[in-house]
Design a binder for these strands. Structure first.
Length: 636
DNA sequence: GTAGGGTTAG
């Protein structure tokens, strides 16, 4: 049929390297289909065109088998118009021809055209359904994808592992636990729960819906694992706030003989960010270098963020400056802007943004969010409002709730409380509890107890169980010495059974994390710490420290109040750190809530009296205490 | 043909 010899055909597609398995193929048509496939894998279009003309000369270009494969190659290599032309001219299209074209359009982002082809198909098979369902879910039309899954079922097609994988991804995208659990039922009935892809997708679905336990058990029940299954588990743990568990699984994964890939690294680096365990972060950074992955943009952005959140801004800057690979990736620029902002260096953040504009890089919504955040955290109200304007007018970006909340923060921190409230009420999006809480926190900073009560009401209308708001409100009232109001807040908390989130601080010593819970005596060295704390506080008092007992919520006498204040988790952590580190060694402490006023004052005294640099990361930012003052300028 | 990830307000 074909004049061209086998060897020259193979040479054409494999750059002269004749492969054993290819030269064993006898049928020319079979060989051509194999060669086309290899061209797609190597993403080279030229040999495809060559093969096309050869088949035309040989007169076999119109056979169904060959033309389907040619069309597939064109479609996969982005030559959709050519593929469609062939499709239109095909005398006898079959289901496969349709499916190929659908897949091609989906891969090239033309979902609409793919759906059109699907709708016009007279006959479909499971693969046709799978292709459109996967496409819909890929482009986040999850609802539509799931609807199609139901249609597929009513038309008598049985879902296979491809269908189930896509559908589970759709449920994950929608965070729809109910639908996801129903699909779990299908999975069990079809006996595909042990399939690697289905299992990982299902575990991912559960974890995205917050069902950590179910996700873990799906993974554990799988008889065979691969890197993706491990990654699903590790990422699921971090995303559900279980960073310690993620790092444990990471170690187990390595012990089981799996090599972490870029996605594993991203997840574990982000765990170190959450825990602010610098030592482990550095260790993983070394592993990344050894694995030769320092040019992967997602890893670099995680590293920049990790170092910043561990209190080492210099290292963030170093990773950014020495970045290999994509120098113009806007995510890296956004990361470094956020890193500066996290440390209260708004002017530096703005400089980076200006450089970004000069270099013609496209800032996106995240860039602006980081920028607004940086401005509000160092009192650059005017600048921040300018950027908000720039974002809308010049960059044509539609602000999201997060951006609006930043603006509220900008206005509120600067003391323009009424303007902030007006701004919230005039927003085109409905404010959420976070937006209101931002304003409430500004009320506390500026000691406006009346407004605080009003704003707290708004929040409790949306979420009556929001403990942080009760605490903020009560603290604001306490600052204004409105004791009756304080007890009113506490009463309603009791009535509604709202529990205050306990204050936690932790400190990393020799790669081990020591956790301190407010008022908790369970640390093995509690007695020693307690004794040391007492001495420390007395020493601070000699230098002028006065405990701010107004902040303690409970009805107690002065001595008890002081005792309570002394056992705030960050004070216990700093005592433990002072006891266990050499003189002059900087101390890094992390806290889950915002640092309280009294601890903030005490830390300043500690840094002065003990001549130590203390870095405290609280729920919203960093505080660098040195020589009796704090980098936040008492503004947090 | 299929799965898992990064920067981001409080």
């Amino acid at each position: 049929m074909l004049e061209t010899s086998k060897e020259s055909l193979i040479a054409l597609c494999t750059k002269g390297q004749i492969k054993q398995d290819l030269s064993r193929i006898w049928s020319h048509t079979h060989l051509i289909s194999k060669l086309l496939k290899s061209c797609v894998d190597r993403r080279s279009l030229f040999p495809v065109q060559q093969l096309h003309s050869i088949t035309i000369t040989a007169g076999c270009s119109k056979t169904k088998f060959i033309s389907n494969h040619l069309m597939n190659a064109y479609a996969k290599l982005g030559q959709l118009r050519t593929a469609q032309n062939m499709f239109d001219k095909m005398p006898d299209r079959n289901v496969m021809s349709h499916n190929i074209l659908i897949g091609g359009f989906i891969q090239n982002g033309e979902l609409g055209t793919a759906i059109e082809i699907f709708n016009k198909m007279g006959q479909r098979n499971s693969a046709s359904w799978n292709a459109v369902i996967a496409g819909m879910i890929k482009f986040e039309f999850n609802d539509e994808g799931l609807r199609l899954f139901a249609n597929m079922h009513t038309e008598g097609f049985l879902p296979d592992v491809y269908t189930l994988g896509s559908v589970l991804r759709g449920c994950a995208g929608l965070k729809d636990l109910i639908k996801g659990t129903q699909v779990h039922g299908y999975v069990m009935r079809s006996g595909s729960e042990f399939d690697l892809v289905v299992g990982s997708s299902m575990a991912h679905m559960y974890m995205r819906c917050g069902s950590l336990r179910e996700g873990e058990s799906v993974i554990q029940l799988m008889p065979v694992h691969n890197v993706v299954a491990w990654n699903t588990l590790i990422a699921g743990l971090v995303q559900n706030g279980c960073a310690t568990g993620a790092l444990d699984q990471y170690n187990l994964m390595k012990m089981a003989g799996f090599r972490p890939d870029k996605i594993t690294f991203v997840s574990v680096i982000s765990s170190c960010s959450d825990l602010a365990t610098l030592g482990q972060g550095q260790q993983i950074h070394t592993e990344v270098i050894k694995a030769g992955a320092m040019s992967v943009v997602s890893i670099l952005s995680s590293l920049i963020s990790m170092y910043s959140r561990c209190g080492c801004l210099n290292d963030s800057v170093r990773v950014f400056d020495e970045r290999e690979g994509a120098k113009d990736d806007h995510v890296l620029w956004s990361s470094i802007i956020a890193a500066y902002g996290f440390h209260g260096k708004g002017h530096e953040a703005i400089k980076i943004f200006n450089r970004m504009e000069r270099e013609g890089l496209q800032a996106n919504d995240v860039t602006f969010l980081s920028l607004l955040y940086s401005c509000s955290h160092c009192g650059l109200e005017e600048k921040g409002l300018e950027f908000f304007d720039l974002m809308i007018k010049k960059y044509k970006l539609e602000p999201q709730i997060k951006h609006y909340t930043c603006v509220v923060d900008l206005l509120g921190r600067a003391g323009h409380l009424e303007e902030a409230e007006r701004f919230i009420r005039s927003m085109p999006i409905k404010p959420d509890t976070i937006t209101w809480k931002t304003l409430l926190s500004a009320c506390k900073t500026h000691k406006n107890a009346d407004m605080a009560s009003k704003i707290a009401e708004e929040i409790l209308k949306i979420d009556p169980q929001d403990s942080a708001s009760y605490v903020l409100l009560s603290n604001t009232q306490a600052t204004a010495k409105r004791w009756q109001d304080v007890s009113k807040v506490r009463k309603s908390m009791r009535e509604r059974m709202v529990k205050k989130e306990p204050g936690l601080s932790w400190f990393e010593l020799k790669n081990q994390v020591h956790l301190f819970v407010m008022g908790d005596k369970s640390h093995p060295e509690f007695n020693k710490i307690d004794l040391y704390l007492k001495e420390l506080m007395d020493e601070l008092k000699l230098h002028g420290y006065v405990p701010d007992i107004g902040l303690v919520m409970h009805d107690m006498d002065v001595e008890e109040k002081e005792y309570n204040l002394v056992h705030h988790s960050e004070k216990m952590a700093v005592a433990f750190a002072l006891m266990n580190t050499p003189e002059g060694f900087p101390i890094r402490i992390m806290k889950n809530l915002r640092v309280c006023d009294d601890c903030h004052v005490a830390m300043k005294y500690v840094s002065l009296v003990k001549n130590r640099e203390i870095v405290v990361r609280d729920a919203s930012r960093f505080h660098h205490f040195r020589g009796g003052s704090c980098s936040c300028g008492d503004y947090w």
